[in-house]
Every structure is written in structure tokens, then in C-alpha cells.
């Protein structure tokens, strides 16, 4: 799980062009939206693409993202339980 969390942090930084942020700057339980990394709705869509492209998880209902993208740890747990690649 720890490896997946670290991998996910790097993938999020790359996918969302968080140029001046390193994986160490993202806490495992930090909120990704709102006060956390300050991501916006376009970033949420980009995370949905990332889930499908990297882990074969297709979120058919974008509102699911609200729960799944609460933190990197929650995202990693969801990926581990549902990944197809």
C-alpha cells in the first residue's frame, strides 16, 4: 500500500502539472480538494482519466470522485480494491 501511495503521489503531480510540489509535500491523508492541494473541477476530471489510464478503473459516475478523491490514501485503497491493471 505504501508503494502505491507514493506512486500515486508522483502520478498526480505529473498529471496535474503540480510543478512546485514534490511527493513529500502531499500528506497521505491530506484533502486533495479545498484546503489541501487546492485542486479544481478540471483536476477532478483529470484524476478520473488517470484512474482509467493507469489502473483500468472506469468511474461511470463522476460524483463518485467526491468520495474516492478525498485523500491519496483513500484513492490508493480504492485502486487496490478495484484495479484491473
Amino acid at each position: 500500500m505504501e508503494d502505491l501511495i507514493l506512486e500515486l503521489k508522483s502520478e498526480i503531480i505529473k498529471a496535474l502539472n503540480l510543478e512546485e510540489i514534490s511527493p513529500n509535500d502531499i500528506g497521505d491523508d491530506d484533502p486533495l480538494f479545498g484546503d489541501g492541494l487546492g485542486l479544481d473541477s478540471i483536476d477532478a476530471l483529470e484524476l478520473i482519466v488517470l484512474m482509467e489510464k493507469n489502473y483500468g478503473i472506469k468511474l461511470t459516475d463522476p460524483s463518485q470522485g467526491r468520495d474516492i478523491f478525498r485523500s491519496v490514501r483513500i484513492m490508493a485503497e480504492y485502486i487496490q480494491a478495484n484495479r484491473t491493471k
Binding site: 496535474l16 502539472n17 478540471i42 476530471l45 483529470e46 482519466v49 482509467e52
Partner: peptide, 9 residues
């Protein structure tokens, strides 16, 4: 085929 929303905008 993975359309990028952030590029699309």
C-alpha cells in the same frame, strides 16, 4: 484514447 480535460480547456 484518454482525452485530457486539462488540455481540452
Amino acid at each position: 484514447f484518454y482525452p485530457s480535460p486539462s488540455l481540452f480547456v
